[in-house]
Nucleic acid binder design. Structure first.
Lengths: 341, 341
DNA sequence: TTGCACGCTGTAATCGATTACTGGCAGGCT
DNA sequence: AGCCTGCCAGTAATCGATTACAGCGTGCAA
């Protein structure tokens, strides 16, 4: 292992000078050149651990997610990883299973490991990030809004719900149900609100019968179809407000009578078909998705945006906390400042 | 930040004693108790960075994967994470996109970051792990076999291929094609070999026409169906040797005539249906999977097994390199030693 | 009683990079 | 000439935990 002293000796300078050259402080050109030569000859890379000890923070960021097995979050992870890596940071991945206690654990780990920062998709509306923030660690919250005064990046969830419902309205459906997540998550609530607003805008009632608070997993969507088909009158279409609920809905329909229908007229042989709208992407769909009204998201963009904010904080920005809205149009990753609440 | 000296002062002992208590060396019980009290009162946690500097390796393991967006690998990641976390290690995730250059980069990062070890699903048969091994870092290779003398955990891929083909034979199919991955990966080759053997065992010819070397992604499976339907005589069923190729196959069939058929008799309205067998799981399938002959895997078990081996190495085991075969029966994570090659 | 061995504890060195502080030198000003 | 300023480079302190080494006390044997 070559150390900084080896480089210093070889270049005929002090370790301080080597350090300065490597960190871009001003040094006489001749010495800088000698240092660079020595570094190249010895193949020297600074020891990250020693550097972290001295600098009091590491070059690692934590990405704390409810569920890495959800393709939405894996895409987020890719985005974070891309941006972080380009800046020389590594990403450690942490799964909370949507449980506050595991989340706390990981946030503590991030703290005692002196990680440079945390990107957090919180399990509930009150993540334990205050201590981290007080200690000067950078934190960016994504996907779900929280009341804390930290940087946040979310989608315009109300607009997403509105758009999904409108797409089904445009296809001619009239009695449109909504399968959303727990009422405790802002994402679930906001998307459902958008759905409701779209129905109102179309002059239709958003019957409470038609709103199901399930969970954001496959089984939630699956079971919700059972519930909804028991309503009378039954809906003629359903909006699933996230990808996994959408998978569950589609699988339930496939198990019953062959899948979603593109328009109200298209009754299948096994009963009246349901139209389906899904907020999110279905990268592993095993059926035709052209009959589904998809409102694609841009989770990877969400990840890169969050990482960018985080890196700015790590670099020392002390601007007031920002709340960005991740744009989704056509997979670009443009970002708009949040509407004033 | 409370440091070890604070604890030492409070307990009225030296830092050496505190360290020894915390690391389980023998210390007079009275002092140990005092240290424990002080630790509890101050809420002390040792600084991992400082510890890593001194111990010359960190408490982090790298998990280097071709593609975290593939549900198979995310499940592997969960397994590794569970086991590593239980042992107090963090996991950093690295995406190689199946490219050797990115893989090299990450392996180098793992080295210069003094990571305790690496779990690697290699992009090709010759990962650059020799330098890591020489430097005494622990390495476990998973999923694909390599010629290096390191611990490896794989599935019995030949048996998997055999089983998938046999399942289709049992359903009455006779002209069974195979869509597998690049001929450069042992996994793709072995599974195809199993497919071929099953046909031979049934007294059928494994026509070269029916073996497609695609890639292990969705588009590979999708396009392969186009190729196979152009053969004459066309196959009556197809084995996809990994999950994503399976997704592609199913989606291609859905786009053409409504999906897989459970048996050769079941011609659909839009043409002769194909039977489908898939090695792997389809957690995000949006169609009925009961018509698909699934050979489920146990990627999470693969991950925990690999992590277990890795942790043993990190703890200092210098047993000869092991090659384990991950069992898949019923989702358990039992492990058998490899058959002698 | 003296000597030796053993076991526990404390002091201080160590891991490797960063950086506060000090000192030297050059150039400009009075 | 004498003084001050500013720039640059080197020395050494520093981050916090671990551990080699030394010292001390106890107990046993001669």
């Amino acid at each position: 292992m070559t150390r900084i002293v080896d480089v210093a000796r070889r270049a005929g300078v002090s370790t301080a000078t080597v350090s300065r050259v490597l960190n871009g402080k001003s040094v006489r050109p001749a010495l800088a050149a000698a240092v660079h030569d020595a570094v190249a000859e010895l193949g020297y890379t600074p020891d990250r651990t020693a550097r972290s000890l001295r600098r009091r923070h590491s070059e690692t960021v934590a990405l704390v997610l409810p569920d890495v097995e959800n393709p939405f979050f894996t895409a987020v992870a890719r985005g974070v990883e891309d941006a972080a890596l380009a800046a020389g940071y590594s990403v450690v991945l942490c799964n909370t299973d949507d449980r506050a206690d595991k989340e706390d654990l990981y946030l503590t780990v991030a703290d005692v490991e002196n990680m440079a920062g945390v990107v957090l998709a919180p399990a509930d509306a009150h993540p334990a990030i205050d201590r981290l923030v007080e200690r000067g660690r950078s934190v960016v919250v994504i996907d779900r809004r929280v009341a804390h005064d930290v940087d946040q990046v979310t989608f315009d969830n109300r607009a997403l719900g509105h758009r999904a419902a409108t797409a089904l309205l445009d296809r001619g459906f009239r009695r449109i149900a909504c399968v959303t997540g727990p009422a405790t998550t802002s994402t679930a609530v906001d998307r459902a609100e958008g759905w409701r607003a779209a129905l109102h805008d179309a002059g239709l009632a958003a019957d409470d019968d038609l709103l199901v608070h399930a969970n954001f997993r496959v089984d939630g969507g699956y079971d919700a179809i059972g519930t909804l088909l028991g309503r009378s009158p039954a809906p003629d279409a359903v909006v699933a407000t996230n990808n996994l609920a959408g998978v569950g809905v589609l699988r339930a329909l496939a198990d019953r009578h062959g899948g979603p229908v593109p328009a109200p007229a298209g009754d299948g042989p096994d009963g009246p078909g349901l139209g389906v709208g899904v907020i999110g992407d279905l990268p592993f769909a095993t059926s035709r998705t052209s009959d589904v009204a998809l409102v694609p998201l841009n989770p990877r963009g969400l990840g890169t945006t969050a990482a960018r904010l985080l890196l700015e904080r790590i670099a020392g920005s002390d601007a007031p906390a920002r709340h960005l809205v991740q744009e989704i149009g056509d997979g670009t990753d443009a970002v708009a400042p949040a509407r004033p609440a």
